[in-house]
C-alpha cells in the first residue's frame, strides 16, 4: 500500500490533483456557493457532454490515434434518434438504440479507413468530419428541432432535495451517464485484456503487431467505442438543452481534446489514464465555474483560463524532460 501511494505521488495525476484541491479549497473559502450541492450538480450536468466525449477520446488517444469527427457523429446520432422519437413512440430504449448504433457505425467507418489507408488519423477523421457534417447539413438543411417529446424533455432524475421555491436538486440523466461512461472506460482500460492491448498498441504499434495482436480489430474497437459514447453524449446534450441543433456541437472538439491532454494523455499514444482525464476535465470545469462565482470580469476569465492551461502544459513538459534525462542517464551509465 505504502509503495502504491509513493508511486502515485510521482505521477502527473497527483500533481493535477494537488492543484485542483488547492483551487477548490480557495474557492470554497472565498465563495460560499462553490461548495454547495447545487453547484456540484450544476457543474457535473453542464460538463457531462464534454466529459463523456473525453472518456471515448482518451481510448483513441492511448492507441496513438485521434478522432475529430465525434462531434459530427454525435450531431447525426442526436438528430436521427430524436426525429424518429418525434414521430414514433420509441421511448428511451429506442433512442438509445438508434443513437448508439449510429455512433458505432460511423465510428467503424473511421476504423475501417484507418485500417485500409494506414495514414494519419488526423487526416482521416478531419475528412470524415466534413463528410458526416456535410451530409447532415444537406439532409436537414440546417434546421433545428425545437420541440421534443415530453417524456424526453422531462428526463429522469433521482431527486434528493427540494427547496422552498420548489426547485429540486437531483442526480439527473447527465450525471448518471457521465459516471457510467467513465466507469465503463476504466473497466475497459484497466480490467480487461483488451485494455492492455490498447496500451501496448499505442506504445509501440510494430511490436504489438509482431507479438500477434489483432491491430485491425483494435482499431475498429476503439473508433467504434468512441462512436458509441458520442451517441450517448449526444442524447445527454439534447436533454440538457431541450432541443436539437445540427450546428451546435461541431466546433467543440478542441475542448474535449484539451481535457484529455491536460489530463496527461500523450498524443503520441501509449499513455493516459481515466483518472487523469477526469482531473483534466475537473480543472477546466472548476476554473470556468469558480471565476464566475468569484465575480471575476468575463474579460479576465479568458486570460485566466489560458494561463492555467499553459501552466498545465509547462508542468507536463517538465515531467517529460525529466523522464528523458533519466533515460539518457540510464543509457550512458
Amino acid at each position: 500500500m505504502h509503495e502504491v501511494i509513493k508511486r502515485f505521488t510521482r505521477t502527473h495525476e497527483f500533481r493535477l490533483l494537488l492543484v485542483i484541491i488547492v483551487m477548490a479549497g480557495l474557492l470554497a473559502v472565498f465563495t460560499p456557493e462553490f461548495a454547495s450541492l447545487q453547484n456540484l450538480v450544476d457543474v457535473l450536468s453542464a460538463n457531462a457532454f464534454i466529459g463523456i466525449m473525453s472518456a471515448g477520446l482518451l481510448v483513441v488517444i492511448i492507441t496513438g490515434g485521434i478522432d475529430l469527427s465525434f462531434a459530427a457523429t454525435a450531431s447525426i446520432a442526436q438528430y436521427t434518434a430524436l426525429t424518429v422519437a418525434n414521430h414514433f413512440g420509441i421511448g428511451w430504449t429506442g433512442i438509445f438504440a438508434i443513437s448508439i448504433s449510429l455512433g458505432v457505425v460511423l465510428g467503424l467507418i473511421n476504423g475501417v479507413l484507418m485500417n485500409t489507408l494506414r495514414t494519419s488519423a488526423l487526416i482521416v477523421t478531419i475528412a470524415t468530419l466534413n463528410v458526416f457534417y456535410g451530409v447532415l447539413l444537406t439532409v436537414t438543411r440546417g434546421a433545428d428541432i425545437f420541440s421534443l417529446p415530453d417524456w424526453f424533455n422531462a428526463g429522469f432524475e433521482l431527486v434528493f432535495h427540494t427547496d422552498a421555491q420548489g426547485a429540486s436538486l437531483a442526480i439527473n440523466f447527465q450525471i448518471i451517464a457521465l459516471f457510467a461512461a467513465f466507469l465503463v472506460t476504466w473497466l475497459l482500460l484497466n480490467r480487461s485484456n483488451i485494455g492492455r492491448q490498447i496500451y501496448a498498441f499505442g506504445g509501440n504499434p510494430d511490436a504489438a503487431q509482431r507479438v500477434g495482436f489483432n491491430v485491425v480489430r483494435l482499431n475498429l474497437l476503439v473508433y467504434g467505442y468512441m462512436g458509441a459514447l458520442a451517441g450517448v453524449a449526444s442524447l445527454v446534450q439534447a436533454q440538457l438543452v431541450q432541443s436539437v441543433s445540427p450546428t451546435a456541437l461541431v466546433g467543440r472538439e478542441l475542448d474535449v481534446v484539451a481535457a484529455v491532454v491536460i489530463g496527461g494523455a500523450s498524443l503520441n499514444g501509449g499513455s493516459g489514464t481515466v483518472m487523469g482525464t477526469i482531473l483534466g476535465l475537473a480543472l477546466i470545469a472548476i476554473l470556468q465555474n469558480g471565476l464566475i462565482l468569484l465575480g471575476v470580469s468575463s474579460y479576465w476569465s479568458l486570460f485566466n483560463t489560458g494561463l492555467v492551461i499553459i501552466a498545465a502544459v509547462v508542468m507536463m513538459a517538465m515531467e517529460t524532460k525529466k523522464r528523458h534525462k533519466l533515460v539518457v542517464q540510464g543509457v550512458t551509465s
Partner: peptide, 25 residues
C-alpha cells in the same frame, strides 16, 4: 451586476452561465 458574460451563442453555455450568475449574484 457584473461585466457582460459570453456564452449566448449556445444554449448549453447560456444555461451554465445563468446557473453561475444566479449563485454569484
Amino acid at each position: 451586476a457584473a461585466d457582460r458574460f459570453p456564452g449566448a451563442d449556445f444554449i448549453d453555455e447560456s444555461e451554465r452561465v445563468t446557473q453561475d450568475i444566479l449563485k454569484a449574484h
